[in-house]
Amino acid sequence: MDATDMDVEDQPQSSSISFKRFGLKNYVQTNFGDDYVFQIVPKNDWTSMAVSLSTNAVKLYSPVTGQYYGECKGHSETINHIAFSGPSNPNVLHSCSSDGTIRAWDTRTLQQVSLISAGSSQEIFSFSFGGSTDNLLSAGCKSQILFWDWRNKKQVACLEESHVDDVTQVHFVPNHKNKLVSASVDGLICIFDTDGDINDDDHLESVINVETSIGKLGFFGESYQKLWCLTHIETLSIWDWRDARSEANFSDARLLASNSWSQDHVDYFVDCHYSGEGERLWVVGGTNEGSLGYFPVNYKEGGGIGSAEAVLEGGHTGVVRSVLAMIEDIKSGAEQSQGIFGWTGGEDGRLSCWLSDHSSDTNRSWISSELVVKSPKTRKKNRLQPY
């Protein structure tokens, strides 16, 4: 297994604004061949992290020691979304797939423990648990939002009039268990109240028109009242979902980020990261060669995208698909989990670990390649294209 080690140091930019360049601790080649890393998510207590791959499997690692725990296999098509269960079921991992199923896995035994099927003709792109008892499961499908009672696996509702294209995101709002936000390729964000018998006519509260296909969204703010929204054409917008009010729209977000980053041109955005301390929001942009930058987003007072405050480069050779940050305040480089800044995964099949300090063990290898590669006999031959 190859490994590259770099120190963390402040680097000057032509604009005289310094940023922190984070060191590459090590990287793990998850498979032979051209398989993608899709998503990296942490367990609630950070004792493990799950990594979805284009092999239709999910692998488990320790985010601190890098130990490989094993994999969960069962999906027959692309895994579109993974998430650990809440504190009441800390060892349960959920996944949804284009095979039309949502599965639950016991991460101690790596065995499937539950399955819900939306039908072989459906593709499930996203799911979320919420409702008054946290047992209401919502799922975004082709142009529908489906609901089940997770306790008995019975479907309780189907919303099919609010969207006219693939529903890429469904999220129950944190601290608002009965509020569901959905987003679609049709460019609409819909906000629903899921109390009672759910239907399109009575439970659709408001609609936000982003006007282009929506890839990802997330909540932030003291009471999670704000939304950030990234589209498939790399625009960024900020909204207050409670009154469907636009707070900022960056239709030229890539250009703004590129102009404030002298190293490379930003080709795409991966995610957004929010820190409650100082109420700061960053958009994470990347290059086709694998470099990443954390760009601060000023969505107040006219708005703007500032110079990169963290740069991660040298860890990937292709497009990065997922970022898992393990610190709260990027600018200060706060130490957490033995100086680990976080993990990234991409289309080169690598998991890269990044350091936020001058740790004494930067020259130590973490993971034996024999633990993480799969047999060449089962190697996936065709490269999976992004959604």
Rank of each mutant, 00 (worst) to 15 (best):
K153L: 08
E160P: 05
H163C: 14
H163N: 05
K154S: 13
L146H: 05
F172L: 11
V167C: 07
Q155V: 06
K142W: 04
V164R: 11
F172G: 07
K154A: 13
W150T: 05
Q155R: 05
H171E: 15
C158S: 06
V170C: 01
K154H: 10
D165N: 15
V173A: 15
N152I: 10
E161T: 12
S143Q: 08
C158N: 07
V170T: 01
C141A: 08
N152P: 14
Q144S: 09
C158P: 04
T168P: 15
F147Y: 06
V164N: 14
L146S: 05
L159H: 04
S143L: 11
Q169C: 15
G140R: 02
R151T: 08
D166R: 14
V170H: 01
P174H: 02
S162W: 02
W148G: 02
P174D: 05
R151P: 03
Q169H: 15
F172S: 03
K142T: 05
Q144L: 07
D149H: 11
V170D: 00
Q144C: 07
Q155D: 09
D165L: 04
H163E: 12
L146D: 01
Q169M: 15
V167D: 00
N152T: 05
D166V: 12
K153H: 10
I145Q: 00
V170K: 00
W148T: 02
Q155G: 08
K154W: 13
A157R: 01
P174M: 10
D166M: 14
E161S: 10
A157P: 03
H171W: 07
E160Q: 11
D166A: 08
H163K: 12
S143M: 07
V156E: 01
C158K: 02
E161L: 11
R151M: 07
V173M: 13
V173Y: 09
V156H: 04
D165Y: 12
C141P: 01
E160F: 13
V156M: 02
S162T: 12
A157I: 06
H163P: 15
H163G: 09
V167W: 00
V170E: 00
P174N: 13
L146N: 06
E161A: 11
D165I: 14
L146W: 01
R151N: 11
S162D: 05
C158D: 06
C141F: 01
S162N: 06
V167L: 09
P174I: 10
S143R: 09
E160C: 07
S162I: 02
C141W: 00
V156C: 03
E161K: 11
V170Y: 02
V173D: 03
D149C: 12
N152W: 04
V173F: 09
E161C: 12
C141V: 05
